[in-house]
Simulated scan of single mutants.
Amino acid sequence: MAQTASRNDGEIVHDFLSVAGLLEQPQLARIYAYLYREGDAPVQELMDALDLPQGSAYTYVNRLTDAGVLTITTDAQPHQYGAVEIELTLTVDSEREYTISPILIDAVARRTEDETIDSYIDRRGIHGLAIALTHTVARERGETTHRLVADDLDLSALEAEVIMQALRPVVREYCSFEDREASLAEVVDAEDLDA
């Protein structure tokens, strides 16, 4: 749902509220992220893959469809559902913007399974997670280190490393990088040499 100048204010507000619902409810985010990653699927596949009860699965899918972030992709029964592309940019303060996109929604969805992500969101909010996600992408590209990220996010070096390690699987699923697999020990050793 990329925003364009041709969209009226009501549609933009509806889009924002739809996305806000995804970010506030990890179960909704999990369904969206699964369909975005895996492609169109019927509700039964969502129930099996995400271990959802039937009633909840249908309720969630209907809410997401009504919100406009899922769409029915087949006329035949059982219906297949697909994720709508989301890209909504918000300004946190005069210096920081972040984009709500499928990768952020997937990171939020993982809070139910990953204590580190859950705790980080509790302390820093969704906007803090979005910023950490941006830094994790930069780190995976070799453009920054956990110490520089720690300084920018006002975290300890350990806290920065921990959240970036938790976000790494999400980043690896959505972004492609040159194959530069360095171990954590190599990264830490290289940074110690620079200090």
Rank of each mutant, 00 (worst) to 15 (best):
E87R: 15
R111D: 11
Q80E: 15
L90S: 02
A150G: 03
Y174E: 08
R139H: 13
A57L: 10
P42F: 08
R96I: 00
S18W: 08
E85R: 12
E115I: 09
H127M: 00
T89N: 02
H14G: 06
A190Q: 15
T112P: 02
L148S: 11
G125Q: 03
G39R: 08
E87M: 12
Y34Q: 12
V188D: 10
P78A: 12
Q25T: 09
L70M: 12
L88P: 03
A182M: 15
A195E: 14
E186W: 14
G55I: 02
M1V: 11
V162Y: 05
L129T: 09
F177H: 09
D106G: 07
S176I: 11
L148F: 06
D194Y: 12
V170S: 09
T116Q: 10
E38R: 15
P42H: 15
A33D: 05
A67M: 04
Q44V: 00
L28M: 09
I163C: 04
I86W: 06
G82V: 13
D66C: 13
T136Q: 05
I163F: 05
S119N: 13
L23N: 06
A41Y: 03
A160V: 05
E85I: 07
I72L: 05
I86H: 07
D189G: 06
D51Y: 11
R168G: 05
L88F: 15
R30T: 04
R111T: 11
V13Q: 13
G125T: 06
L133I: 06
H14S: 13
R141I: 07
V149Y: 01
G21D: 10
R180K: 10
L167D: 03
L155V: 08
Y58D: 06
A5T: 11
I86F: 04
V61C: 07
H135V: 00
E87I: 04
T4V: 10
D114H: 11
N8T: 15
P42R: 12
Q77Y: 13
